[in-house]
Design a protein around this nucleic acid. Structure first.
Lengths: 188, 188
DNA sequence: TGTAATTTTTAACATTTGTAAAAAGCTAAT
DNA sequence: ATTAGCTTTTTACAAATGTTAAAAATTACA
C-alpha cells in the first residue's frame, strides 16, 4: 500500500497539498515484535502501514487487552499523544515485520494550520476512525460474543489468518476459552 | 451553555471565523419525547445542546440499545449522516425539554472547505468524539459491569439523576436487572 | 528430525449475567 | 387520597462466560 493511495484515499487533495504532505513522510522498517510505541510516553509521530500487521493493547489487572489491529493502509497512532500531546495509555506492537510511513505530529499539526486542504484531510482521518470506533462500541454493547466473532470473519477474514487467536479473543471482548468454544460450535 | 462557549471550547477561532460559523446556527426548542432524528433517514443537521438531555439508540432484536447520552454542550449528530451523508442507523430522542443550536451539514462542510480555522475546528470536533468513544470501547472490553457503573457515578453523576435507569443499564452494556443488582450490592 | 516453546483446545467447575415474572416503589392526574 | 401507569427492585431459574489446569496441536529452531 503506497503513501499516495493512503493519502488520497482519505480525502482528495490538490497536487501542491499532496506533495507538501507527502514530503514530510519518512519510510521506516521494523521487525516483528518491535514495540512502536510505549504506554506512559508521549509519542511524537503517527504512522501508516505500508506492509504488516500491528496491535494496540493496554495492561489491565488481569493481563493485556488488545483493543485495536492495524493492517495495510491503516493509521497507527496513540490517541492521547496525537490529539492532546499527552502520554499514551496503550502500547503498540508489530505482529509481523512492517514497513511504515512515519510523520511527526507537530509538523503535521502545523500543516493543518497552514493549509485548508490538509486541515480537511486531518478532519477526515479523525472522522473515519470515529465511525469505525463507534460501530465497534455498539457491537460490543448489543451483540453476543458469537455474533462479534462471525462479524469479524465476514469483515476481516484476513485478520484471523494473520493474528493469533488469543489477541483476537481479547479484541472481541471475550476470553480465549470462549473463543475456542465458539469456534468448536461452529464446526458442527 | 451558550454557543460562543461551545464553539470556542472546541478550538480557538479568530473573530471573523467565529462570527461566520456562529451566523449559521439557529436556535430551536423541542419538548421532552421529541424524536430529533430517525433511523433510516439522512439527517441534514447537527446540533449542540444548550439545555437538556438527549439519548441515541438503535433497535436490536431484543429491544433498544442506548449507546450515547448528550448533556449541555455536547454535539448531537448521526455519524453516518454527518460523515458520509448517508442514512442514520440510530434514533435520537429528547429526554427533557431541550434548547438546541442547529446547523446544516452541507453548509458546515462548505465552511470547512472555505476556511482553514473552521476546518481545524471540524477536525477537533471529530477528534474529541473519537477519544471519548475509544475510551468507552476500551472500558467495555476490559472493565466489569460493576466497574463501568462506578466509573459513571464518578464521571457523570448528573446523568444518573436525570436519566432513567433502564437507559443507563443499556448504555453500560448490561440488563436493567444487573444494574439493580449492582446498586443493591453497593449499599452493603 | 527432534525437542522445546508456544498456541489452541478441551474439561470441569465457579461466577456472572440474562430472562421472565412478580412485587414494590414512584409519579401524575383526577 | 386513589387509581393507573410507569419505573425499579427482587426472586428464581437458565444460559453465557470466566478461571484454572491439563491435553493436544502447532511452530520455531537447534
Amino acid at each position: 500500500m503506497n503513501i499516495d493511495d493512503i493519502i488520497t484515499g482519505l480525502y482528495p487533495l490538490p497536487e501542491h497539498a499532496k506533495i507538501l504532505l507527502k514530503s514530510q513522510f519518512k519510510e521506516i522498517t521494523y521487525p516483528k515484535g518491535h514495540i512502536l510505541l510505549k504506554e506512559d510516553c508521549v509519542e511524537e509521530h503517527i504512522y501508516f502501514i505500508k506492509r504488516g500487521v500491528v496491535r494496540a493493547y493496554s495492561n489491565a489487572i488481569n493481563g493485556q487487552v488488545t483493543f485495536w489491529f492495524g493492517l495495510e493502509g491503516a493509521p497507527v497512532l496513540s490517541m492521547h499523544s496525537y490529539i492532546f500531546g499527552k502520554k499514551s495509555y496503550e502500547r503498540i506492537e508489530l505482529l509481523e515485520d512492517c514497513d511504515l510511513y512515519k510523520i511527526n505530529i507537530l509538523e503535521l499539526r502545523s500543516l493543518y494550520e497552514k493549509d485548508v486542504h490538509l486541515a480537511n484531510w486531518g478532519r477526515k482521518l479523525a472522522e473515519q476512525e470515529l465511525v469505525k470506533t463507534e460501530e465497534r462500541l455498539i457491537a460490543m454493547q448489543f451483540k453476543t460474543a458469537q455474533e462479534r466473532y462471525m462479524d469479524l470473519m465476514n469483515d476481516q477474514p484476513a485478520l484471523l489468518l494473520r493474528v493469533q487467536l488469543g489477541y483476537i479473543a481479547s479484541y472481541l471482548g471475550m476470553s480465549q476459552v470462549s473463543l475456542s468454544r465458539i469456534r468448536a460450535d461452529k464446526k458442527k
